[in-house]
Design a binder for these strands. Structure first.
Length: 507
RNA sequence: GGCCCGCUAGCUCAAUUGGCAGAGCAACUGACUCUUAAUCAGUAGGUUAUAGGUUCGAGUCCUAUGCGGGUCACCA
């Protein structure tokens, strides 16, 4: 044994040996289960005849109340709990003793018998036979729970966030509300796929390991292929690959997968996160706006049963149509600045300072505007809001407005005070695109880490001819936060990134 | 990366001005044939995150480190 058992674990290990001595197979291969807890209960409710409903159930021991010659215990399976009732005079001293002396909270048990109702009124299983399915050696960090007026109150619950994330298995085993978050997340993913599939999309998979990164402004993770002796990047977006597919003739493509960004972590940022991107040939951003509203409302209806939800104390209504504001109007309203009056970096920077604001120094006018947006507009958008028409210099892959070359057809959706989606009419002019890459390169040359590589292959694809198209990206983690009323992204990611204990040093 | 806060029994938390480190649950022993936070009696459980310092005396004060939480910065 490589790990020293604690006193508590030693006590349990002794029980394990006891059961083994008594001839029990501690970790059997086959389980016989005829009913889930909930099925056993509802079947009994149909008849209410004591002795009528015979079941075999399996689950994890969640509570044990021993009263001398009888025992009450609850087992828990994925969907519910069931009370077991064991009597010494029915089971015999020896078998009854196996339970009393051999079983602990956290053990997996299989039990069979007949359903009945106790004097206190709880539908329970009168156990005739039982066996162990898996012994628990380390005690779960379980609290005790009681039900008051139908509300579940847990005492001394396992709440330390660090411990919960590091030992998510224990968190899930003990805090069963947590499992519901991930059921909702799963329903969201299924609903999004269903929506897109029904709208004629093909789901595709593009490289995660990329020789060049692009499609977003973010620092990438780097890795290395030994045999090819090639440095590779973990993707920061799918965009450039998906649009290559539009060149290739797919008219509607989407991908759901993981992006990786080597940046700060926060309540809404995890180094790896799940993204949905789609591209539609012959569509522009207005068509994408309509589809976005429908898709998110559809996902809410499917995952929650409603397009209304509660988020951090606010009622949010996702029913289309959503409020739409152009970026200039939004900044007038929330930041009290009309950006049209300040057409240069210097003038805009001056008015921001004059208003007594302390935005960090930015390199371009577009970045200043973006800083204003995230400081003033984003937190104010509780109801779903489409902000559209962005500065060109922070949107190098988006097409300009026909009457205003400095503004592009781009929109973002904000809801619950968070950015949720980013979309635009995609730039499909290869000459213009090359110019934009050059401009970006210039802007970022000063800061080597954020320098944007020129993707020659992508430009070649575009030179073959890319149909006009509208593109879209959405963070699935944030959508899940919204749908499950969670204030941090870590709660909706099963294994969020945490610093390693005793590590964290750059080598 | 900056700043603030935290780290005490398996879990959740106490500990007055620097003065014997405690409780509930979990565990162990015993009682108990309808309990459900079962109850009752008893027992055990600690290098107070780590390393150093101040002090007659440190969970408490100081310094450093680790990990976490919050916040700011960063995040086309």
């Amino acid at each position: 044994m490589t790990v020293e058992f604690s006193e508590l674990e030693k006590a349990r290990y002794k029980k394990l040996l006891f059961l083994k001595d008594q001839g029990m197979e501690l970790y059997p291969r086959k389980t016989k289960r005829t009913h889930l807890s909930s099925q056993a209960i509802s079947e009994f409710e149909q008849s209410e005849e004591d002795g009528d409903v015979h079941v075999e159930v399996a689950g994890r021991l969640q509570s044990i109340r021993s009263m001398g010659k009888i025992v009450f215990a609850h087992i828990e399976d994925e969907r519910g709990k069931l009370q077991l009732f064991l009597r010494r005079d029915e089971l015999g001293d020896e078998v009854f003793g196996l339970f009393i002396n051999g079983f602990d909270l956290g053990d997996f048990i299989q039990a069979s018998g007949v359903m009945f109702r106790t004097r206190a009124g709880e539908i329970s299983l009168r156990v005739e036979q039982f066996t162990i399915l898996a012994k628990s050696i380390t005690p779960l960090p379980a609290g005790k729970e009681e039900i008051i007026d139908g509300e579940r109150i847990v005492h001394s619950a396992f709440t330390n966030p660090e411990a919960r994330y590091r030992q998510r298995y224990a968190d899930l085993a003990v805090n069963h509300d947590i499992r519901e978050i991930f059921w909702t997340r799963s329903r969201i993913m299924r609903a999004l796929r269903e929506f897109l599939d029904e709208h004629g999309f093909i789901e595709v998979e593009t490289p995660i390991l990329q020789p060049l990164y692009g499609g977003a402004a973010a620092k990438p993770f780097t890795t290395h292929h030994q045999q090819l002796r090639q440095d590779l990047y973990l993707r920061i977006s799918f965009e450039l690959y998906l649009k290559r597919l539009i060149v290739g003739g797919f008219e509607r493509v989407y991908e759901i997968g993981r992006d990786f960004r080597n940046e700060g972590v926060s309540f809404k940022h995890n180094p790896e996160f799940t993204q949905l991107e789609f591209y539609i040939a012959y569509a522009d951003y207005e068509e994408v706006m309509m589809l976005t509203e429908q898709m998110v409302a559809f996902a809410a209806a499917k995952a929650l049963g409603s397009t209304q939800l509660q988020y951090q104390g606010e009622s949010i209504d996702l029913t289309p149509p959503w409020r739409r504001l152009d970026l200039r109007a939004a900044l007038q309203k929330y930041a009290k600045i009309d950006i049209a009056d300040f057409p240069t970096y210097a003038s805009l920077e001056e008015i921001i300072r004059d208003q007594g604001d302390t935005l960090a120094p930015e390199s371009t006018r577009g970045k200043l505007i973006e800083a204003l947006l995230s400081k003033y507009v984003e937190p104010a958008c509780i109801q779903p809001t489409i902000i559209y028409d962005y500065p060109r210099d922070i949107s190098p892959l988006a097409k300009s407005k026909v009457d205003d070359p400095e503004t592009v057809e781009r929109f973002e959706v904000f809801v619950g005070g968070m950015e949720l989606c980013n979309a635009f009419t995609e730039l499909n002019d290869p000459v213009d695109q090359e110019q934009r890459f050059q401009e970006m390169r210039k802007d970022y040359d000063a800061d080597d880490k954020e320098r944007h590589p020129m993707d020659e292959d992508y430009l070649r694809a575009m030179r073959y001819g890319m149909p006009p198209n509208g593109g879209f990206g959405m963070g699935i983690d944030r959508l899940t936060m919204l749908f499950t009323d969670q204030s941090t992204i870590r709660e909706v990611i099963l294994f969020p990134h945490l610093r390693s204990k005793g590590g964290g040093e750059d080598k």
